[in-house]
Amino acid sequence: MNTSVKDTMESTFAGWTETVGNAMLEGEARMSTRNTDVFYGDKQAIFGVDLDIGKNEVLAMIGPSGCGKSTFLRTLNRMNDTIDICKIKGEILLDGENIYDKNMDVVSLRARVGMVFQKPNPFPKSIYDNVAYGPRIHGLVSRRAELDEVVETALRKASIWDEVKDRLDQPATGLSGGQQQRLCIARTIAVSPEVILMDEPCSALDPIATARIEELIAELSENYTIAIVTHSMQQAARVSTRTAYFHLGRLIEVGSTDKIFTAPDHKLTEDYITGRFG
C-alpha cells in the first residue's frame, strides 16, 4: 500500500494513451464527444475525451473529486459558456450536429439537453409556474388548457403529481428537499428534452428521497437519454447501463456497468471501485 496511490497514478499517466473499453458505440449515438479538451484559463481540466452516449441509455460518470466529470457534463449543454475563462476544443455532437458550431443556438440546445443540478434549485415561484416556465419561454403551448396538461404530465412523469396536485399555486420552496429535486426533474422534462444531464442529483438528499429519484431515473430512461454524474458507486451500479470512469481530467475506462464493477480492465478503475482511494 505504501507504493502509494500517487505513484500508481504517475506511472499510469506516464504511459497513458487512450481510454480502455468501448467508449464509442457501434450503433447511432445520441451525443458524442470527439477529442474534447476543456481549459479554465491556462489550466486544462479535460484531456481529449472521446465518448458516446447512446439513445435511451443511462450513462453514469464516476471518479474522485476534481476528476472533471462535472465539468465534462456541463460542456454537454454548454453551461460552461457562462464562465468567461472556460475554453473548449474538439467536437461535441448532438444527433450529428456540433453543439459548439456557430449556427447552433444555445437556447434551443438547452431545450434539447436539459439539466438537473446537485442542489435542488426551484424558482421561488409557485409549483405550477416552476414547471410551466420552460414551455412558456419557448412558446411551446398556445392555450392555457394545453399548458395545464403539460404541467400535469411532467409532474406525473416525475412521480410527484400526487403530492402536489392540491397545492400547485403554493411556493415550490415550501416542498421538502426530495420533492424539490423531483420538481426540478419535472421542470426539465416539461420542455421535453432528448437528453437529461444530472449532476449528482441525490447528493443533498436522504436515502429515501434518493431511492425515489433512482426509481424515477429508471422510468425516465425509457424515453430519455440520461447522463448522470455521481459520487456514489452503489448508485452508479443501481441506475446505469454504462459507466465511465474519469481520473484527473482523463476518461480512463468505459464499459457496461456490470463489467466496470465486476471486472474492470484498468488498474485505476479497479483501485477506485474497490475503495483503495477516492
Partner: peptide, 18 residues
C-alpha cells in the same frame, strides 16, 4: 441572488435577458 437560480433558468434554455 443565488447563482443556482441563474443556472436553473439557463439550464431550461432561458436567454440571459430572460
Amino acid at each position: 441572488v443565488p447563482p443556482s437560480i441563474r443556472e436553473a433558468a439557463l439550464g431550461l434554455g432561458a436567454s440571459r435577458v430572460q
